[in-house]
């Protein structure tokens, strides 16, 4: 389960809700401020709806695209245990995508529109999947770091103000912890293996560390929609708060299995009770958001191909259903 907040890049920049009925707006704001949940048929400001559609569909796309880099490795898993685990994880990611698409559909967008937006390149997904998975250790690094960062993002979303999104996140969070643990266990096994295996594990950490930190989105001062989203309780923590939390819990996990976090500036700060860490390369982040990641094209081609190859199945199933429904009516 993955999410990257790309709010700085979105089109739906907070149209201010002032054009709407001030009484309805005030009632809405009061409900949200009171930590009530907003449900599909409730009145909501257009900008709230738009922000949610963008965020939830982006989140769903990330789940679906996230199946690709790991799916690549199913046939090359080193043993049956690892293969069964990876299959289950990839299936979960598909399931998470479906929960989220359903949640977004309650806001009045169709599945078809969302998928079209993804394939045409209009919709974004987590930048993390535009990096290649070069070795088996990457599967460990993804579970441990990428799913770990995702959990950090998702736990607060269980209390997000939109009911269907919050409920989808409860389900997702319940399933996610297995993803992270299997990844860490895999890294642990490799770090305790031969010199070559340990080198692979360290190399995977080196390559996935910074992209994982980017998963929390741009720094707070460059994330213009954060304030609005926090006020509407769509977001509950800022990008930088979550990033710090992730660093603080992950560094000791790396140390415990004898791996080194690739950041020369990383240092425990006694006074803050937290790690100081180096600057993320935001130039790289924005380039990857724009679709310049090493394997961005390949990912979208794979998605498009799967969609096109499945078209006849979707059509045949519909034709079959129509035929049976017609036969049933005729028999009555």
């Amino acid at each position: 389960m993955y999410t990257t907040d790309l709010s700085g890049k979105g089109k739906a920049k907070a149209e201010t809700a002032t054009a709407e009925d001030p009484a309805l707006l005030a009632a809405f704001e009061a409900r949200v401020a009171n930590d009530e949940f907003i449900e599909p048929k409730d009145w909501m400001p257009e900008a709230y709806r738009k922000t949610l559609v963008r965020q939830i569909s982006q989140h769903a796309h990330s789940e679906i695209v996230g199946m690709l880099p790991e799916g690549n490795w199913i046939t090359r898993a080193p043993n049956l245990r690892r293969k069964a685990i990876l299959l289950a994880k990839v299936q979960d990611e598909g399931g998470h995508g479906l929960y989220l698409y359903s949640a977004a559909e309650t806001l009045g967008t169709s599945r078809d529109e969302m998928i079209e937006a993804l394939h045409s390149g209009r919709a974004k997904y987590s930048t993390i999947f535009n990096y290649p998975t070069l070795t088996w250790a990457d599967i460990g690094a993804i579970g441990w770091l990428v799913d770990g960062a995702a959990i950090m993002n998702q736990v607060p979303l269980q209390r997000t103000s939109y009911g269907p999104y919050a409920r989808a996140m409860v389900r997702v969070c319940k399933e996610e912890s297995f993803h992270q643990r299997q990844g860490y266990e895999l890294m642990m096994a490799m770090a305790a293996g031969t010199t070559g295996q340990k080198r692979m594990a360290q190399d995977a950490l080196n390559r996935w560390w910074w992209p994982s930190l980017m998963m929390f989105g741009p720094p707070d001062d460059k994330s213009p929609n954060t304030e609005q989203s926090m006020r509407w309780r769509i977001k509950r923590d800022t990008n930088d708060e979550l990033r710090q939390k992730f660093v603080d819990i992950t560094v000791p996990q790396a140390e415990a299995i004898g791996l080194t976090v690739p950041d020369p500036a990383l240092k425990w700060n006694e006074e803050r009770g937290a790690y100081d860490f180096g600057e993320v390369d935001w130039e790289e982040f924005y380039a990857v958001v724009k679709g310049e990641g090493p394997v961005a094209k390949e990912r979208m081609q794979a998605r498009q191909k799967a969609w096109d190859d499945g078209a006849w199945v979707r059509e045949a199933a519909r034709a079959h259903a129509d035929k049976r429904a017609a036969a049933k009516i005729a028999a009555e």
């Binding site: 479906l98 559909e105 409920r167 989808a168 389900r171 199933a317 079959h320 259903a321 049976r324 429904a325």
Partner: peptide, 11 residues
Amino acid sequence: AGSVHAADAKM
């Protein structure tokens, strides 16, 4: 629990 898309009841 949620919703799904399907062509018919069995699916």
